[in-house]
Amino acid sequence: MCIMRPPHPALSCTGELLAGLGALATADPALAIQMHISENAAEIAFTKALFPRGSLPGLGANATTGDGVDEKEEETTYAGVYDVYGLLPPNTVLAHALHLDEREVTLIHARDAGIAPCPTSNFNLRSGCACVGMLLDAGVKVGLGTDVSGGFSPSMLAVVQHASMCAKVVAAAGPPPAHTTFTDRQLPSPRSSTLRRSAAPRPLCFLQQDCVVLQRGDSKAPESLATRITRHPLTVPRPPFAPAELDALAAVRPPDECVLGMDRAKAGLPY
């Protein structure tokens, strides 16, 4: 799996660069794209100032009235900027997404792009709380990320804990709206856990094709698993697991969990 990661958010790109990246994405539909979006209010305002409606390449091949760029609106949305440059295909992952407006949520769902809040980083930088429940109710694909440059831990287990706390903070703001399942509610523990797994109902970036999930009693030979992990080094830390390590991993963690980051050291494995 190849990943195209533009230079951080849109505000660090020129229109020409975004257009070139969009052309690459169009030429290779299997290319995974990861970008930041709506991490804080200042970033959103700066992006809209850098990409006023008049500077955008029309409404783009994919954007229509009611999407990120509305014919009756004088300004676009952050997600709308990415959309007009062709950077919201289904294999796009948008990090953070803390301050999306309703039009952006509708647009991201329509494009089947995914969102990966990074609650550890978001708390640490006081960026805000992602409304994960609202995104799930809207049908948006949601995962989790560490963003260790802004956070302080590479552990996905810590991220799951912080995602649960974030949902509680959002829920404390007021009663949830009627006729919703997750919006403004505390996320059940099983649902929080699936946000980080390749076995999630709708994994980001088609990762179900590339991730290896270790389980107790897996019938696959350890050598076969080791070969698969080596073939997809982006899904696990280096160096690749040896067969003996695979047995250790299955023993020290519950089903469906891999040991990553600092948890490898805690389990007595090479880090």
Rank of each mutant, 00 (worst) to 15 (best):
D70G: 08
P117G: 03
L21E: 07
S55G: 12
E43I: 07
L31S: 07
T120R: 04
G60P: 02
P29Y: 08
T14G: 14
S12I: 01
E74A: 13
D67I: 01
V93C: 13
P119M: 06
I37L: 14
L98Y: 05
R103I: 07
R103W: 05
L59S: 07
I33Q: 01
N124H: 13
A95V: 15
R103E: 03
L88K: 02
I115N: 03
A110T: 10
A61P: 04
Y82Q: 04
A95L: 14
E43C: 08
L50V: 10
G86S: 10
E74L: 11
A25F: 05
L17E: 15
I108G: 03
A30L: 13
L87F: 08
L17N: 04
D70S: 09
G20H: 13
G22K: 02
S12G: 05
A27H: 12
N91I: 05
P119K: 03
R53F: 01
T76A: 13
L18G: 00
A79G: 08
L100N: 01
T106A: 14
T65M: 05
A45M: 13
Y82P: 00
I44V: 15
P9D: 14
A45S: 14
L21M: 14
G20P: 07
S38L: 11
F123R: 08
L50R: 13
A49S: 14
D70H: 12
T77V: 09
T64F: 11
A42T: 10
E73R: 07
L125Y: 02
F51E: 00
E75V: 09
E75K: 10
T64Q: 12
T92E: 04
F123K: 03
F51T: 01
R53L: 08
A116M: 13
T76V: 10
L87N: 05
A110Q: 13
G58A: 06
E71A: 12
P57A: 02
A45T: 11
G22D: 04
L11A: 06
A42N: 08
A10V: 13
A42V: 07
N124E: 13
L17C: 06
T26E: 15
M35N: 10
T64W: 08
G15F: 01
F51Y: 15
E39D: 10
D28L: 08
G66Y: 14
A110M: 06
L100A: 02
P9Y: 12
F46C: 10
A42I: 06
T26M: 11
L107A: 12
